[in-house]
Structure formats: C-alpha cells, structure tokens
Amino acid sequence: MTDTMKVSEIESTELAPAVETTAKRGVRWTAVAMWAVALGVLALLGWGLIQANAPRPEVGEVAPPFTVEFFTGYEWQGQPSVALEDLRGKVVVLNFWASWCVECRYEADVLENASRQYAPDEVVFLGVAYADVEPNSLAYMQEFGVSYPHAPDLGTRISNSYEITGVPETFVIGPDGKIVYVHIGPINQTTLNRVIAQAMEGGS
C-alpha cells in the first residue's frame, strides 16, 4: 500500500513537465469556454428576468401594433381585416374576451350599447377572442347580438403583446395611438363613457 502511494506521488511530479506543453494549450481554451458558458447563461437569465418583469403596456405608451382578421360576418368599413395603424385618429376600444369566461358576460351588453352610442368613425370598438374556439365565439356573439367587429386572436399574438392577465380586459387607445386606459375585469358604462370622453379630448 505505502509503496503504491509513493508511486503515484512520484508519477505526478515526474511526469508533469512532459504534459506541460499540451496542457498550456488546453488551459486557455477551457477557461475561455467556461467564461463563455457562464456569461452566456447569465445573459440568458438576465434577459429572461427583464422579460418576466417587463411592465405590461401602460397608460401613455404606444399601443403594440397588430392586424386582425374578423370572424365571418364581421367587417370594418367593408374590410374583412384591419390593422391598428389604420385606426390612427380614432379612439379604439380594444376588448379581450372569451366565450368560456363568465365575467365577460357581465360587460357584453355594456360594450355593445357603447359601440352604438358613438359614431363609428370616431370610436372603433374591437373585440378579440382569447384562447376561444370558433363555434363558441360565434354562438356567444349571436347570444349578445354583438354588432361591432370581433376577431379571433390568431396565434395568441395580440394577447401576448398586450400581456393580458386574463379576460375580460379592456384597453382604450387614443387617436394618437397611445394607451389611455387599461381595465382589468368587466367594465361598466360610466367608466367606459368617462375614459372614451377623456381619450377624445386628449387626442384633439
């Protein structure tokens, strides 16, 4: 036992110079790789953190752009689809909803009434169905006799860019394309009227 112990000690000292040359080359490479991986992972984590803590689009910020294709039977000024940029100069009430969402039912009539109350070239109402299946969406819209344009959220992209926390959620966007108001949960008539008025003033 003791003999072998000595041997391995001798081995490690005696052989060191022989391996030195190959070792040196390896050193820098390994160190660089370690730094690269560590910093890369750090960057990824940091970026993820920024993303996770990113504030949702807030009042005063420019509303994220999107284009929607309406459900069949719906249109805006004869068009089957619309982009948010095309609506500049108008107040946009963007409402996220789903047929499976109970609370959305509380506000459906409110929104429908409001949409009839304002001139269509001043205030545009847009409904976006979140994670909803088409037959149910259509049935829901029929149930509430919704007349303003509604669209499915293809690829769940709009919901993601507005970082909605759930449905219903309503964004009121001013004529300048900036968000005037964000409402989480079902909205009521008074609030809606107040913020639309506010948006129209702010824009002019």
Binding site: V27, T30, A31, M34, L42, L45, L49
Partner: peptide, 29 residues
C-alpha cells in the same frame, strides 16, 4: 428577482474566476 440575479452573477463570476485562475495548478496528470 433582480437581487437574486445579482447574487447568481457574483457566484458565477467568482467560481469561474477561481477555476480558471487555478487551472494550471489543478492540472493533474
């Protein structure tokens, strides 16, 4: 989140720094 990230960054950098600093000495045959 941010503080924790700072801690991780310190630990990563600290660990890799010492690993690469002692790389030569750790070179076992």
């Amino acid at each position: 989140g941010p503080l924790f990230f700072g801690f991780i960054a310190i630990m990563f950098v600290f660990s890799v720094y010492w690993l690469s600093k002692r790389h030569e000495a750790l070179k076992s045959e």
